[in-house]
Design a protein around this nucleic acid. Sequence first.
DNA 1: ACCGTCCTTCTACAGGTGTAGAAGGCGATA
DNA 2: TATCGCCTTCTACACCTGTAGAAGGACGGT
Lengths: 212, 212
Amino acid sequence: MTTDRFAVLTDAAIDVLAELGMRGLTHRAVDARAGLPQGTTSAYFRTRKALIEAVVRRLADLDRADLDARELPAGADSAAVALTDIDRTAAGIAALLDQWMSTARHRTLARYACLLEATHHPELRTILEYGDASRAQSRAMLAAAGARNPAQAGDHLVACIDGLLFDRLIGAGARTAPPPGTAANRADLTIAIATLLRAFAGQHPEAQRSGT
Amino acid sequence: MTTDRFAVLTDAAIDVLAELGMRGLTHRAVDARAGLPQGTTSAYFRTRKALIEAVVRRLADLDRADLDARELPAGADSAAVALTDIDRTAAGIAALLDQWMSTARHRTLARYACLLEATHHPELRTILEYGDASRAQSRAMLAAAGARNPAQAGDHLVACIDGLLFDRLIGAGARTAPPPGTAANRADLTIAIATLLRAFAGQHPEAQRSGT
DNA sequence: ACCGTCCTTCTACAGGTGTAGAAGGCGATA
DNA sequence: TATCGCCTTCTACACCTGTAGAAGGACGGT
């Protein structure tokens, strides 16, 4: 149920993390945010480290669920999809990014906060499973598309896509780009991602134009 | 002199920020890091907000100095450079990124921490001057290179380049990519950035091959 | 030599925070 | 019904942090 204390608390913790930052993430702040009596979070997560680890696990789960839901239904073999219709793939990724910066904004902010935190606490690197999943997918896609060095190109691709997300969520792009949650934002992202896909696959607009 | 208290303290604060994160940034921690008696930081920056703002200003200054030193000497008109030799431009940017993730690692980590902090404290958005500078430069470069929509493509370009930096510094790329500070890393980055430049400029490897 | 000014260092203290454990309540089992 | 174990809530307390102000000292002007 939604009264599962662990889920309620970790979700509240994610909200706190997004709004107050790592510094504001305290047991009492999570209690307040969840509307539960003081001491609750402290009882469920005796130490602060335990609380953060729970948040990290939750984030990883939610992200993986999003990825699984988005990428797979397009076709059983996602590698084939890339080859046949780059623009559709780009639009799919753009939709996911747009969701992560509008609906799931808190979650994404919390993820970046944890990612930064993982710099000093290596045991938090569990989050990277999410990165590894999309990394593997990108490599497969580009390999199927005939890229010369799929591993390298795939890594570059996910780094760039994550850069688009970060820039719009936190960086300067947050003001200059179209606002998240709008069709304009998705369209803009689609253009960027399609360009990236073609570039890293070693294909180019002209060569691809016949496919439309 | 190097005994300028303000500079010593803000530099120590940047180190603390990089090593302990925003949560570890306290007056006393900065004192300890700088090897100065307790209370020093508190005397120079009466409030915590003042301390963070000083750090942000310092980061902005240092970054702008790096940018000015790197990009300009290549030629008075940087836009022309892009057109004539994409690979050289890419190598220059790659060198800067490599420096930011090896020599200037602490500074870059601190910058991301502040960027994240600026989410809840809009007055810190001074850092974005740095982003705006490279953004303008990218737009000009791509415009000169004949891109159809230079403003849009320029924004996408800086976002992607920043993604490469972030990924290697903090994300999954920190383990899979060549280690920062090595020629291999610069070479890898150069490949990625050259691909990006060509893609967003609307030029492509084949079309460009005659230029070599 | 005397004084005022500034820089530096120390100390105080009111909150806030992490963590442990006690107290209370509630359903299941015998 | 009495007992036990578990989940929940409350309380305690040592420690850390932000911030203010006092004490100390160097130093140039008169």
